[in-house]
Amino acid sequence: MAGMTGFQREQKIKTQHKGMIGGVYVSSTYRGQGIAKELLSKVSAINGERFWRNEN
C-alpha cells in the first residue's frame, strides 16, 4: 500500500456540502512522488460527484 486517506461528510442537511479529511498517510517508500496530492484530488473528485448526485 502506497498511501491512504479518510473523509467524512457532514450529515445534517444544511452542512452536508462540507466534509473533513481525517488524515493522510503515505508510506516512506513512496513519499515525494505526489501520492498525497493525488489521494486528496481523488477524494475531492469522488465526494464532489456524490454531492451533486445527492448521494448520502
Results as ranks from 00 to 15, higher is better:
Tyr25Cys: 07
Lys37Thr: 12
Leu39Ser: 03
Lys12Arg: 13
Glu38Cys: 02
Gln8Phe: 00
Gly19Ile: 04
Gln16Leu: 12
Val24Met: 13
Arg50Ala: 15
Ala45His: 05
Met4His: 10
Leu39Cys: 03
Ala45Val: 04
Thr15Phe: 07
Glu55Ala: 06
Phe7Trp: 13
Gln8Ile: 07
Gly34His: 11
Gly6Asn: 14
Gly3Val: 09
Arg53Cys: 03
Ser44Ile: 04
Leu39Gly: 01
Thr29Cys: 01
Glu55Asp: 13
Phe51Asn: 01
Arg31Glu: 12
Ser27Ala: 15
Gln11Glu: 11
Glu49Pro: 01
Ala36Phe: 05
Arg50Ile: 03
Arg9Ala: 10
Ile35Met: 10
Glu10His: 11
Phe7His: 05
Ala2Trp: 01
Glu49Val: 03
Ser28Tyr: 03
Gly48Ile: 07
Gly23Met: 13
Leu39Asn: 03
Lys18Leu: 15
Gln33Thr: 04
Phe51Cys: 00
Leu40Asp: 04
Met4Tyr: 12
Ser41Arg: 15
Val26Met: 10
Ile21Cys: 05
Lys14Pro: 00
Met20Leu: 06
Tyr25Ser: 07
Lys14Tyr: 06
Ala36Trp: 07
Glu10Met: 12
Lys37Ile: 06
Asn54Asp: 08
Thr5Cys: 14
Thr5Asp: 05
Gly3Arg: 14
Glu10Lys: 15
Glu38Arg: 13
Lys12Cys: 01
His17Pro: 01
Phe7Arg: 07
Lys18Glu: 13
Leu39Trp: 01
Met1Gly: 03
Asn56Trp: 07
Ser28Ala: 08
Lys37Gln: 14
Lys18Cys: 07
Glu49Cys: 02
Met4Val: 04
His17Tyr: 01
Gly23Lys: 15
Glu38Asp: 10
Gly6Thr: 15
Ile35Gln: 06
Asn47Thr: 14
Ala2Val: 09
Ile46Thr: 05
Met1Asn: 03
Gly19His: 06
Lys37Phe: 03
Glu49Asn: 10
Val26Ala: 11
Arg53Phe: 00
Lys14Glu: 11
Ser41Met: 13
Val43Glu: 02
Arg50Asp: 14
Lys18Ala: 06
Gln11Trp: 02
Gln11Ser: 02
Thr5Pro: 00
Ile46Cys: 02
Lys37Tyr: 04
Gly6Glu: 15
Ser28Phe: 02
Met20Glu: 10
Met1Gln: 04
Ser41His: 13
Arg50His: 08
Lys14Val: 04
Ser27Cys: 13
Lys42Trp: 02
Lys14Arg: 15
Lys14Met: 09
Ile21Pro: 00
Lys42Arg: 15
Ser28Leu: 08
Ser41Gly: 14
Val26Glu: 08
Gly23Arg: 15
Met20Phe: 00
Gln16Ala: 02
Lys14Asp: 08
Gly19Glu: 10
Asn47Pro: 02
Lys37His: 09
Thr29Gln: 09
Glu38Ser: 05
Thr5Asn: 08
Gly48Cys: 06
His17Phe: 00
Gln16Val: 03
Thr15Gly: 07
Val26Leu: 11
Gly32Lys: 14
Asn56Ala: 13
Ala45Pro: 00
Ile21Thr: 03
Ala2Glu: 08
